[in-house]
Amino acid sequence: MDTLDKFNQEDQEVLALVNKNYARARRESIEREQEERLRQTKIKYQTRPKNKQRDFVKKAIIGIVATATVLGVGSKMIDITKDNVARNEFVNIVADHVNDNVVYTNTLSSDGNGYTWYYDDVRKIAQETLNENKDIDIDTRIYGTYLGLNDYQRDEYMDKIMHELQDIVTENPLDYTEEEVRACNHTNFTDYLASLGMEKDDYIRFMRDVTLAYGQNDIEKVQELLTKLNGGGR
């Protein structure tokens, strides 16, 4: 069977798009003619800083890697790309409320690299973790909050958020489900992870699978994973 025959219709549409991007990148990167080479306007390599949406460079790297590899490794890579898109769309749902609470200052950080920022209202982030997206289980909502935080001081902020979560469920336990109370009743993030019987790296790997299953709308898989999660040690 020809390689192209292995792609279903949707894959072929992705492939066509990727092929087009790759051809354009190749065309725009190479001087084709000697004449063109001679009259080429040199552009001084002098950059300027600009603020872009979070993770722009990360996404740009993925764009180049995906475009350049997809023809070589075929549908498997397309599947990975599609899975990641589905997962990221889901993650945006459970992580978005964190972005609403970040405040960027006009003060340059001490190393001169970017501007300082802080989370304005940690309790509000905790409240929104508990009260929004109720159709999604609480552990995945907590993971969404974790992903939404900036990498820098992420664990410190998670400690504060877990503390707030505990305060909220102990103040009004009847407002929350048994699962929510059990998941949130920890003084800090380390205690929360311990309740799952996981180290942080294992937790991140495990929850990546959970969010992928949510993104694929594979509810059976979600339930299977959550059963394992809650059987971990809590």
Binding site: L17, N21, R24, A25, R26, E28, S29, I30, E31, R37, Q40, K42, I43, K44, Y45, Q46, K50, K52, F56, K59, A60, I62, G63, I64, T67
Partner: peptide, 30 residues
Amino acid sequence: ENDVMDFCIRKVKIENNEEYLVKLESDQEF
């Protein structure tokens, strides 16, 4: 900056201690 799927590659050429971006010379280099 407006499309993460639109990329290109340049190389740096140094002239008089200044860095300039120029296009690549062949498919092989790309």
